[in-house]
Amino acid sequence: MSSPLKPPEGNWWDVPVDRRESIYLGLAGIWSLLIFGWMSIFTRIGDQNPIGDTYRVSPEEFSENLSEYRENAGETEDGVLIPDGEDVYIAAAQFAWQGTPVQLETGKTYKIHLSSLDVQHGFSIRPEGNLTRQVNLLALPGYEWVIEMEFDEADTYHVICNEFCGVGHSSMHGTIEVVEG
């Protein structure tokens, strides 16, 4: 009798482990190491990694940087920003994505400077034509995250907020127009 309600008897540590259990544990152990290894390797060889430099920045500083960027940026007839160079500034604020709408080109690597001017916001983006291609990053007040992106397909990309940021959160929507480069 080997009950989980009673103290185990004798030298339970030396009781041999069943052969099938050993095989399974071996497989599970190898799998654990494989998926750890893949995650690490992918940071070196992969094209989708949530990695970029972070800087401390006050909301006021980031706002100033955003204004300066806007002044240097061009504009389409519809008032869509065209960044001057590779830097793109996007500030989340209750309840808008400042710096959108913005027009970017495919095949060009941009540095997206992402921050929040008030509370935490979720930067959630997808092209209109394929909702499965979606990615979610965080905009934190007090921090500027510089994350590279290179778009491969022209489309209208919709940005919504998917971290609760107060009543009005569900209306927080912006667009990134990606055109052929």
Partner: peptide, 24 residues
């Protein structure tokens, strides 16, 4: 269970790698 684990894992990575380039 392990086979399901592997299948779900591979499918999720497939969906991820369909994205545009993000990060360095």
């Amino acid at each position: 269970f392990l086979a399901t684990f592997v299948a779900v894992y591979v499918l999720n990575w497939y969906v991820l790698t369909q994205l545009w380039q993000i990060g360095p």
